[in-house]
């Protein structure tokens, strides 16, 4: 359970697919327009509950509670062997003109 005052992430659907009237490619038109933000919970709640949060600027925003301890997990990716190959080519090309290394 998440407690009032906890920092959480919420999700909402801004426009359902059938409500999207803008000029859009078909693949996008078939999807809901979804939105996420973060803030402090205004009351105790469980994941999946409809809640209101107070965002960092003090705005009240409603949505579904999806994460009670949000964090970033983007990183430097996995091994990409092509980059090692490129580095080798660059070193060799420089060596040929008496460059560094």
């Amino acid at each position: 359970m998440a407690k009032k005052g906890d920092w959480v992430r919420i999700h909402s659907v801004v426009l359902k697919a059938e409500e999207r009237t803008a000029k859009l490619p078909d693949d996008t038109k078939a999807c809901d327009l979804e939105q996420w933000t973060k803030g402090f919970l205004t009351e105790d709640a469980e994941i999946g509950d409809e809640v209101t949060v107070e965002t960092v600027v003090g705005r009240m925003e409603k949505g579904t509670l999806i994460d009670d301890a949000p964090y970033y997990d983007h990183d430097y990716g996995h091994f990409v062997p092509e980059l090692i190959e490129v580095d080798k080519v660059l070193r060799e090309e420089m060596a040929e003109i008496g460059g560094i290394r």
Binding site: C31, L33, E34, Q35, T37, T55
Partner: peptide, 8 residues
């Protein structure tokens, strides 16, 4: 505050 959306 960052508000994030899907494509469109």
């Amino acid at each position: 505050e960052v508000v994030q959306l899907t494509v469109g």
